[in-house]
């Protein structure tokens, strides 16, 4: 049966620094509108890459192309050394996990059930034995252990976001694609989520996060890719990329970048 076919070969951990997921010359059109143009981007094992840019600049579309949700209009998307489409859905699921902007659920599964769903790709593999241990760990890590027996639809927006993250973390893939994971969260939980993503990158995984908050991107990302009108305007370490000129132009707003007085991390504020 092809629904969840016999266990495929387990993917090896990528060597640190290798390009784990890549977009090469990728474009995307939505009807008449060109959403993305000739994007070249690689995310390496062990780094946290933030995608930033104004509303409608194509951040989430780029993430969905990397996830395989949409077919690129041109160019190639690769994952773990092969074209994305050469992997089956199951093989992709063993390599990358995706956190959508909004997690919806048709039926009232409990929080523990939802997080356990993250372990589905590993069913029938030796890693299945770790399922309960990993689910427990990720529930604790995302501070959702107290919610486990609650039905998911009864949770608040912030709780849903953390449970959704726990599910994605429990999938234990070498690539994490997170679409605005901090949007619904207060400062404490947002920092927790970014620290968790940071930890996974430090542990050797490749992490791509779509972020609106440039300060968060500057503080947590190894590299940032600034998208503007479907193209990458700049890509590199935040301290190099985040300049008054670039951000003011990309966001069409007068923006200034100041070093934090103690840490030196760039802080981005509107000039008022």
């Amino acid at each position: 049966m092809r629904l969840l076919p016999a266990a495929p070969a387990l993917p090896p951990r990528p060597a640190p620094g290798t390009a784990y997921a890549e977009a090469r010359e990728v474009g995307f059109r939505y009807g008449e509108a060109t959403v993305l143009r000739r994007i070249d981007l690689a995310v390496r094992a062990g780094e946290l890459l933030a995608l930033v840019g104004p509303n409608g600049s194509g951040k989430s579309t780029l993430l969905s192309l990397l996830a395989g949700d949409r077919q690129a209009g041109g160019g190639k998307v690769r994952l773990d050394g092969r074209p994305l489409s050469a992997w089956s859905a199951r093989e992709q699921a063993l390599r990358r996990a995706v956190l959508p902007q909004q997690l919806t659920l048709t039926f009232p599964f409990t929080v523990a059930d939802v997080v356990r769903m993250g372990r589905a790709p590993w069913a029938g593999t030796p890693a299945e034995d770790l399922d309960e241990q990993i689910v427990t760990e990720e529930l604790a890590r995302t501070a959702t252990a107290s919610l486990t027996a609650r039905p998911f639809p009864a949770l608040s927006g912030g709780e849903r976001a953390r449970v959704g993250l726990a599910r994605v973390l429990a999938q234990r893939t070498s690539l994490l694609l997170l679409d605005e994971p901090t949007a619904a969260l207060d400062i404490h939980h947002a920092e927790t989520v970014l620290s968790l993503a940071r930890e996974r990158a430090a542990g050797g995984d490749a992490v791509v996060i779509v972020l609106h908050d440039l300060g968060q991107a500057a503080a947590y990302a190894d590299r940032v890719a600034v998208l503007s009108q479907g193209e990458i305007a700049a890509c590199g370490p935040p301290a190099e990329v985040f300049t008054d000129e670039l951000l003011s132009e990309v966001y069409q707003h007068d923006v200034e970048v100041l070093p934090h007085p103690r840490t030196g991390v760039p802080m981005v504020v509107a000039r008022r």
Binding site: M1, R2, L3, L4, A67, G68, D69, S88, A89, R90, E91, Q92, A93, L94, R96, A97, V98, P100, L103, T104, L105, T106, F107, F109, D113, V114, M117, G118, A120, P121, A123, Q171
Partner: peptide, 27 residues
């Protein structure tokens, strides 16, 4: 009975089910 697990995952939506390895169109 063999459809039970994939249908549970489908409750997350088609995209998320696919992200978890379900061949959604076939299902």
């Amino acid at each position: 009975p063999r459809l039970g697990r994939p249908l549970d995952l489908l409750s997350l939506g088609e995209r998320s089910a696919r992200h978890l390895g379900v061949d959604v169109q076939w299902l």
